[in-house]
Design a protein around this nucleic acid. Structure first.
Length: 422
DNA sequence: TGGGGATGT
DNA sequence: ACATCCC
């Protein structure tokens, strides 16, 4: 039995857990740089569609609602609290996103009751409401989760049983657009073929549509029939690419700004590599101008710099990234975004010696490992970027815009919630 | 007017 | 070296 646990309106619920005044209010959380609405409380949903840019919200609506900058430090910590409880009660879990986890439930008989109890504990300990969908496959568990959220009769847990008579009618009412793995583009194509509901897709020729679209489509159809094709992924599955990027608060064409930015992303990328015990064989650097400025000329360059040997050493990754930056930078453009990607990732055991390199001797390799480990340990203990390569002004104009940030209630001593006894 | 991925051509 | 698709 597969479960999908999903926190309800997660970001909004995190804000409410520490600010009860927001209870029952229409609130929205904004993306980085206070750009788009990326999370909404139920009360906001009728007024503001998902993903709407903040500047497009009509003023008379804006007056009546609360918009907050995203506070990932808070959400990340609350996420850990929720899932550490989940993992106390369920051994086999896959953390799928900041607010979702797939669960593998051994005992089919009492799964629903067990999940109802788990849900209560999570709410009691964290203040976060969650919904749990149960079924035979991940794709069906996702649908079950929608049912659990929509229908208040179920106490937040619903078991979608393919053998139950209700199964067909639930899938008949479920639009293809909302199926996990079917997005806007695909649902338009399916709609043109006359396929509009999950039930219709379930009854299609999986092999034929697999050829027409992709293996992903084929698996989705089989999963809709209750045949598991997508396993739970353990923490051991290595990422094949690692990207870190960010849009700027203000566009810039200053080369030194871009060097700072690329260095920060390269350091972060190297950290991510080390945290999954892998090495990259190439680093890709990219820049982007603002794609919404139709009039100004656009430039979206990228370049992949091969590394001499697989590495996760911050210094070498920074070197490569800055070489790449130098080669793609042109001063006549205003850049809005920059980032790096780690490519051709391999396991740490692939760190073979290279006879052509005097920086990859056994001795140098050991020293690099010790240095990086020390760096990671200090930053883990003292806070991200406590120790870094090169200094960066914290007032730089390209820094994130976050004008409506709430307190980081759970991770900063000076931002703890204050209780007043009257 | 977001960030992070996988996969296709 | 992109482009497309998805969450």
């Amino acid at each position: 039995m597969i479960g999908l646990l999903d926190c309800n309106n997660f970001y909004a619920s995190c804000e409410r857990a520490f600010n009860p005044k927001l209870e029952g209010q229409p609130i929205g959380i904004l993306s980085n740089n206070d750009g788009c609405v990326i999370a909404r409380s139920n009360e906001l949903k009728p007024y503001v569609p998902m993903g709407m840019p903040a500047f497009k919200i009509p003023p008379h609506i804006k007056k009546k609602i609360t918009l907050l900058s995203s506070n990932y430090e808070l959400y990340g910590d609350m996420s850990q609290r929720v899932f550490s409880i989940v993992q106390e009660y369920i051994y086999d879990t896959e953390l799928y996103s900041i607010d979702e986890a797939f669960l593998h439930l051994q005992n089919k008989q009492n799964a629903t009751e067990y999940c109802i109890a788990l849900r209560k504990i999570i709410h009691q300990c964290t203040g976060i409401p969650v919904s749990i969908g149960l079924s035979l496959t991940k794709t069906l568990a996702k649908i079950a989760n929608h049912v659990a959220k929509k229908n208040t009769d179920y106490q937040g847990v619903y078991f979608l049983n393919p053998d139950h008579p209700a199964f067909a009618s639930i899938l008949q009412q479920f639009p293809v657009t909302e199926i996990w793995g079917i997005g806007r583009r695909l649902s338009v194509k399916l709609s043109n073929m006359g396929i509009q509901t999950a039930w219709q897709l379930r009854n299609c020729d999986a092999h034929f549509l697999g050829k027409q679209f992709s293996v992903v489509m084929e698996r989705t159809i089989l999963e809709l029939r209750g045949i598991p094709c997508i396993d739970l992924e353990g923490t051991h599955t290595l990422k094949k690419n690692i990207m870190t990027s960010r849009s700027f608060g203000n566009a810039t064409n200053d080369f030194h700004d871009l060097e700072d930015i690329v260095r920060i992303h390269a350091s972060r990328g190297a950290e991510k590599l080390r945290s999954q015990h892998s090495l990259a064989q190439a680093v890709l650097v990219f820049l982007k101008t603002n794609r919404f400025h139709k009039i100004k000329s656009q430039y979206h360059p990228s370049i992949a710099i091969p590394l001499l040997y697989p590495t996760s050493d911050t210094r070498e990754i920074i070197q490569a990234a800055q070489n790449g930056l130098r080669r793609i930078y042109k001063k006549n453009y205003l850049y809005q975004k920059a980032g790096i990607m780690m490519l051709d990732i391999v396991g740490q055991d692939k760190n073979q010696l290279n006879i052509f390199s005097n920086t990859n001797t056994d001795e140098a390799k050991k020293r690099s490992e010790i240095l990086m480990q020390t760096l990671d340990n200090i930053n883990k203990k003292m806070g991200r970027n406590k120790i870094a390569f090169g200094a960066t002004k914290s007032t730089a104009s390209w820094n994130l815009k976050r004008n409506h940030l709430s307190q980081r209630y759970t991770t900063r001593w000076d931002e703890l919630p204050v209780v007043k006894a009257v």
